[in-house]
Simulated scan of single mutants.
Amino acid sequence: MRDYTGSMGSALAFCLVFISACGLVSPAWFQSDRFSFGLFASCSWPVGKAWNQTCVAYRTLEDMPDLAWKASAALLLGGWLLLALQALLLLSWTIFPEDFCPVKGRIPTQYLQVASVITTFLGLLLFPCSLASHVAQNACGPSAVYSSGRCHLGWGYITAILALLFTSFLPIIWRFQGDKTRKKKILYSSITERIACVSNR
Rank of each mutant, 00 (worst) to 15 (best):
P27F: 03
K183C: 09
G38K: 01
S168R: 04
P27L: 00
F100R: 08
P65Y: 10
R201S: 13
W174I: 07
A28I: 15
S133P: 00
S7H: 10
V117P: 01
D99H: 08
S92K: 09
L12R: 00
R175S: 10
I161D: 06
S36E: 11
W45M: 05
F30S: 04
I195D: 11
D3E: 12
A71I: 15
S32H: 03
W80A: 14
L85K: 04
A13H: 07
S143W: 02
I107D: 05
R175L: 08
S7I: 13
A68W: 05
T192F: 13
S32Y: 04
L164N: 03
E62I: 04
K184Q: 14
D179G: 11
L76R: 04
L39F: 03
C151G: 03
E98A: 09
C22Y: 06
S133G: 00
C101L: 15
L83G: 02
P108L: 13
A71Y: 12
F14D: 13
L125N: 08
G79A: 06
Q113A: 12
L90C: 00
A132V: 12
L85M: 10
M64L: 07
P142I: 07
F96V: 09
V114K: 03
V103E: 12
V17C: 13
V103A: 13
G6V: 05
E62D: 12
R201I: 14
Q137I: 02
D63F: 00
I95W: 09
R106I: 07
F35P: 00
Y157T: 01
I191N: 04
L77V: 11
A136H: 02
I173W: 10
D99I: 13
C140N: 02
A57H: 10
F121R: 06
C43H: 01
V117N: 07
S133Y: 08
F40I: 12
F169Q: 05
G78T: 08
P27I: 04
I158K: 01
S147P: 08
I195W: 14
M1D: 11
V135R: 02
N138Y: 06
C15M: 14
G78K: 05
C151Y: 02
L12W: 03
F30D: 03
L88T: 01
I195M: 10
M8I: 09
F18H: 04
V198W: 11
F121C: 15
Q137F: 05
I158F: 04
A71Q: 15
G78I: 10
A136K: 01
P128C: 01
L16S: 03
Y157Q: 01
C22K: 09
G178K: 15
P142H: 04
L122G: 03
N200F: 11
Q137E: 10
V47A: 09
Y188Q: 13
L91R: 04
G141D: 07
T109L: 06
W174C: 05
W45Y: 05
F100I: 12
A68V: 00
F176G: 05
Q53I: 08
I172Y: 10
G105N: 12
V114M: 13
V145S: 07
N52T: 07
I19G: 02
N52W: 05
A13I: 01
N138I: 00
